[in-house]
Amino acid sequence: MGLPKETHEELYTKMVQCREFEEKAAKLFIQGKVHGTAHFCIGEEATGIGVSSALEVEDYILQTHRGHNQGIGKNMDINRMMAEFLGKETGYCKGKGGCMHIADFSVGSLGANGVVGGGLPIATGAAFSQKYKKSDNITVCYFGDGASNEGAFHESLNLAAAWKLPVLFVCTNNLYGMSTSVKKSMAISDISVRASGYGMKGIALDGNDVVNIYEETKKAKKYVQKNGPMLMVLNTYRWMGHSKSDAQLYRSKEEVNEWKEKCPIKRHREFLIESGMFTAEQIKAIDKSAKQDIENAVAYAEASPEPKIEDIFDDVYAD
């Protein structure tokens, strides 16, 4: 029994939007329209979109610095994401956070994080609230292979397991922590085995198979509601450099090209057409519409005002 057609369309559309968003963002850099930095998840779209799309509004997510897909999956507003990227007042963080800190509490995103592993402890607290209030919802904590070597990973998984907190820990293993290969930074190749050290269930999935990730997240949510935390590792690959200033001297073009062949969007597109669910024309129409969404977002962002200097002290403290 497969997913309904609408779900396939949603997953595909969000992945294309995410790809277009980031490709456009990269162009804006080249044009000198962006002041800060950004971390692109091109090639990893299926991870965040597959997981976040399987959640409800009331489920929380903690995003990473490379988490545009995680946010788009959770139905964040692309206009406000782009506005934040351009540092505008209409952005999610009023231009004060940039895309490393996009958050939308109204859809359950408790924020992206600039610190590797920084969201892990916060996730335990969000899940603690859910459990304390006897909610059925769960918290999804995104992090990467690099974060799984941080102390925060150990403390958080241990606490979540000891207290049976409803957290789904989702590790996007894209094989590199900035420039350092996982082969150099850990002695294991399957990060999901780390779960057993906490008495926790761990699974590893193909991180480029959006349909399977979506279905496994639905199952994982049920498991977490009933049993407490679980670790889900999504094995994928980062096509772009770490950030805008990465010369990528640490890996070969051949390796990158091999992974480009495994493009999650291409894979889903082929499935949708071959299965007869969508025609090539329908897919083209979705692609075109997604591209237009991003053009609209850029127009919105560019037309938005700059933050006001006199508001600089706003939100340092709550009243």
Partner: peptide, 23 residues
């Protein structure tokens, strides 16, 4: 009144996360 593991980082972050979500 929760006795925690000896894990100051996550105790503090857990409190922050709980505070951000209504406690």
């Amino acid at each position: 009144v929760k006795d925690t593991p000896i894990s100051e980082l996550v105790i503090t972050g857990c409190a922050a996360g709980a505070a951000m979500t209504g406690l």
